[in-house]
Amino acid sequence: MAEKVLKQFTVKYWKQNGPKDTNAHFEEKVMKDIPGDTSFLEMLDILNEQLIEEGKEPFVFDHDCREGICGMCSLYINGTPHGKTERGATTCQLYMRKFNEGDVITIEPWRSAGFPVIKDCMVDRTAFDKIIQAGGYTTVRTGAPQDANAILIPKADADEAMDCASCIGCGACVAACKNGSAMLFVSSKVSQLALLPQGRVEAARRAKAMVAKMDELGFGNCTNTRACEAVCPKCETIANIARLNREFIKAKLAD
């Protein structure tokens, strides 16, 4: 296989110093001779290496595991969170072979009131932690449980819970949503636990607490545009949101 090499393209990346920087702007850099097997973040490593050689500060972005599971990477590439791929993938799983000669690649941070910018394309997603802290768990003490097989769980339920639990908390759903809504994130956790007998016990309390925290933190109202599920790297669906709505309404009506 002859490997594709991109001879030249331009990267247009966002520079911002803190959440209140009024001088935030784009900078551009021409990249040359990048092999198609280079991952997107490796391309940015090369870009940073060049900036450092020029004595400049590197372009700051979040990244960690680089295998699509930690949820740290969060770049808005050419108008799509994590860049456009055929199936769900995070920024770190995007490869340069997906781009074309002479492209201008625009890189922006997640833009949402819930995620203030720390620097350049690094944003603060602690709001997600706070939502989980409000109720995204089963209240169970270490060491107390019964045998793992004591409660049988139908395979279909376990599998569906697993799909819901695949959410990596990257925030692409919020970034893509025109309402800045975190419903896909919240509903994935609520769904996972609502589907399992262990989580059912406090399902009502959880739905109410997590939604209340989400609202308090200023995330928007879901208007079912489905932008979130279209960009979710783990293919979470709005069926989760329907389930959250159901759980929440049931809980409120029972109050």
Binding site: T138, V140, G143, A144, P145, A148, A158, A165, Q192
Partner: peptide, 9 residues
Amino acid sequence: DQCVAQGVP
């Protein structure tokens, strides 16, 4: 046992 009780699928 602990993980199942936590809702690990």
